[in-house]
Design a protein around this nucleic acid. Structure first.
Length: 590
RNA sequence: GGCCUGGUAGCUCAGCUGGUUAGAGCGCCGGCCUGUCACGCCGGAGGUCGAGGGUUCAAGUCCCUUCCAGGUCGCCA
């Protein structure tokens, strides 16, 4: 070992010791006769002092050459800082008077300052990620991630879960996200798909008798990216045999509880549960953010009597009318902001506008207010608990548009405009019993809300074919502050039920056998009842680290166009490679 | 695929209604400095204003196309 200590280790108790440190030059302060170097490694920063009266002229001259990010090794004596203690450093009580200096490597001037105070754009940081990763704030996130995965593995190990790896080269299956494909050399014209999740394999592990499985698994989805979405991401994947919903939820909740307890020192308390239908009604979302109120109310029965033609027509045309009360928000919301919500914000969600009413001094102001009859107003005041200083929001029209619109406005108010969401406020919620299917207008068929292997409730089996849209699933999603951390379900373990579900999805018998034959076969050979769940590890870490981008907790993330700013992947390959894979590119090379 | 925001020195940004030689802070380079700790002082270098085209006497600024980055809707079983 070259070094005796890390740069975060030395304390007053080490005074007078002769020690050796290695690290990067973090800052240098050259006073002529004395040169101070802040030496940095993963563990911290130590001040190294080159004093002309202590070290040799040669060493002092070498120290004079040092620049930021040079890699050095120093040997010297630990000394008290006396009156010059630096309270911002863990090692601030001491400094090291260097007597020898070895320059292990020089460094070009970095493209950006690694100083903790410097503001640097993400683009440059990602292009030189290896430099960005040296910054203590960044390193602390990966320390956190390491601790978390260790706790997760230990938690499941103690509870009898086996960590088993599943294939990366898989078969492409219909449904779900776009696959990343890998061409086969030995099977001309055939392709592997990278797993969107280990879903089928973990079910087969249950058929294989492993009873309890866990894996921290890499997953791949070729869809457009978001702040909380990457083309490759990591799931905490679990599956259990002979269980019902409560069993899986209890295990998953226990894991989350110990994570928050051991990493953040936070007791998350009991986790609320809410049926999907209730979440959609009260919050306009399948992942409600419970950090603020503003619950949405059904007003479809009130709308026809409201006197306001927009509300009336919305309901007459087969839609709904709902609204909510932003209590006491009148002062915080300017006319300009309300206009933005009405004329810009809600357009993204398919709404033509957003009706709002500002209540002040008993007066109801806003475009919608004058149209509402006094009687309707009185009823509304009672139903939405209206008082002075409130702002009311309404939407009328197709159900999905109204839900999406009010849900989005509510979140925008809570997190942005009114700033009601406080850091350190952890509101966990299980959203369960989602519908099995959802009608897809474009595909003109039902699609799975969860996935095609999700089991309906036993007492919903008879409507599986007669009324698929009304059939509810044994599913559960864990939501934290409006972010879906993960979800799962009890799976179908009887082949005839699985076949019925495929049929409801418009997957014919031939296609089912071709794409999922191995699963159906497996179910026929004595599959145990089973269920499981998968969490998005990156999203969990992101929440714990208090950042708002998944890229912050992935060492080498991709950009929004799914490329690597550093290695510039993906890149072209030679014609010879293509030929070997029986591929011909249709992309133009101009 | 749609919408929105941004791209000016190595970094972070300013640059008005189109008008002289495009600026600041930090960083960098040189000099000075024995108690700093985001050291300080003096001096200096550094620009394809993302790219291409257009309008104009004149474009960082206006228009069109395009590339890149980010946000978001669609999409993400």
């Amino acid at each position: 070992m070259r070094r005796t200590h890390s740069c975060g280790a030395l304390r007053a108790s080490d005074i007078d010791q002769t020690i050796t440190l290695c690290g990067w030059v973090h800052h240098r302060r050259d006073h002529g006769g004395v040169i101070f170097i802040d030496l940095r490694d993963r563990e911290g920063v130590t001040q190294v002092t080159f004093d002309g009266a202590v070290c040799s002229a040669e060493v002092h001259a070498q120290a004079d050459r040092l620049r930021n990010e040079w890699v050095i090794e120093i040997t010297g004596t630990v000394a008290s800082r006396g009156d010059n203690v630096n309270p911002n450093l863990a090692t601030g009580e001491i400094e090291v008077f260097a007597t020898s200096l070895t320059i292990l490597n020089q460094a070009q001037t970095p493209p950006f300052e690694l100083d903790e105070h410097a503001k640097v754009g993400e683009e440059v940081r990602l292009r030189h990620r290896y430099l960005d990763l040296r910054r203590p704030v960044i390193q602390s996130r990966f320390l956190l991630r390491h601790r978390a995965t260790k706790i997760i593995r230990d938690y499941f190990d103690q509870r009898g879960f086996l960590d088993i790896e599943t294939p990366i080269l898989c078969k492409s299956t219909p449904e779900g996200a776009r696959d990343y494909l890998v061409p086969s050399r030995v099977h001309p014209g055939a392709f592997y798909a990278l797993p969107q999740s280990p879903q089928l394999f973990k079910q087969l592990l249950m058929v294989g008798g492993f009873d309890r499985y866990m894996q921290i698994a890499r997953c791949f989805r070729d869809e457009d990216l978001r702040a909380e979405r990457q083309p490759e991401f990591t799931q905490i994947d679990i599956e259990m045999s002979f269980v019902d919903m409560d069993d899986v939820m209890a295990e998953a909740e226990g894991m989350i509880r110990s994570l928050w307890q051991e990493v953040l020192g936070v007791d998350i308390g009991p986790v609320q549960r809410m049926p999907y239908a209730e979440a959609m009604l009260r919050y306009g979302s399948d992942k409600p953010d419970l950090r603020y109120g503003m619950e949405i109310h059904e007003l479809s029965d009130w709308a026809p009597t409201s006197g306001f033609v927009v509300f009336q027509r919305g309901v007459e045309d087969g839609g709904i009318c709902r609204g909510f009360n932003a209590k006491g928000a009148a002062e915080a919301l300017s006319r300009r902001q309300l206009d933005f919500l009405d004329k810009e914000f809600v357009r993204d969600y398919g709404a033509k506008g957003l009706a709002w009413i500002k209540v002040g001094n008993g007066e109801w102001q806003g475009p919608a207010a004058r149209n509402i009859s006094p009687e309707a107003r009185a009823e509304l005041a009672q139903r939405l608990d209206v008082s002075d200083g409130d702002v009311l929001f309404f939407s009328a029209g197709p159900k999905r548009v109204v839900e999406a619109t009010l849900g989005a406005v509510r979140v925008h108010l809570g997190t942005e405009m009114l700033g009601l969401a406080q850091p350190g406020d952890w509101r966990f919620l299980w959203v369960h019993s989602a519908p099995m299917f959802e009608w897809d207008d474009e595909a003109r068929r039902f699609v799975s809300v969860h996935h095609p292997f999700t089991s309906p409730y036993a007492d919903n089996l008879e409507i599986l074919t007669s009324d698929p849209g009304a059939c509810l699933s044994q599913s559960y999603d864990l939501v934290l502050n409006g972010v879906e951390l993960g979800g799962g379900s009890i799976r179908i373990h009887r082949p005839e039920v699985q076949e019925q579900v495929f049929r409801a999805l418009g997957i014919g018998e031939t296609e089912a056998e071709e794409k999922f034959g191995f699963l159906l076969d497996a179910l026929r050979y004595g599959a145990p009842p089973h269920g499981g769940l998968a969490f998005g590890l990156d999203r969990i870490i992101m929440q714990m680290a208090g950042t708002d981008s998944i890229r912050d907790v992935i060492a080498f993330p991709k950009t929004q166009k799914a490329s690597d700013a550093m290695s510039e992947a993906p890149g072209p390959v030679s014609d010879a490679q293509l030929k070997e894979l029986h591929l011909l590119s249709t992309a133009r090379n101009d």
